[in-house]
Amino acid sequence: MRFILVDRIDELKIGSWAKGVKCISQTNEIFEQHFPGYPLMPGSLIMEGLAQLSGVLFEYSLMQLGHTHKRPVLTLVNKMKFRRFATPGDKLDYDCRVKLFYPDEYAVATVTAKCDGKLYAEGELLFGFADILDEKLLKLSVEAIESFLKNTKIIASDESNL
């Protein structure tokens, strides 16, 4: 199975930014252990959600640029900071802004997670681009992206940003 850690991607501007949402629910099994009687969303999972949002942004942007057989792979987490505890009931607004994007090489995104305007997490994520060599995997990849972007408002890129 795949752990999807972003509930909805609201808006995506090709090659520029993406905004998503993660709602934290008490029913999440993780809180049985993390921690008994004191539920806290692990920072690593917030980071993974932000990485998934960024990954979708880059993969979709690559597709739109004609690079159909590339997949972003998280290669480096830089300056990640967790400012507040995320607890059940919180609705985290995930934001990803492209800092650098070289479709033939790599990309860097600046990410934040906020709740009610307050900063919960921030950092910088680097992605390399791996080739998808198998047509079956490519199909799965395209399907995953489509399912992520089912309810997303897509905004076309400004050529100057790329």
């Binding site: 792979v73 480096l76 090489e105 680097l126 390399g128």
Partner: peptide, 23 residues
Amino acid sequence: ESIDFVEILYLIETEMGVKIKIQ
């Protein structure tokens, strides 16, 4: 390894101000 080059190129760009391609 190939994945290290992403970081190396990024650090060269941000810390030394020179953009180098993997090619």
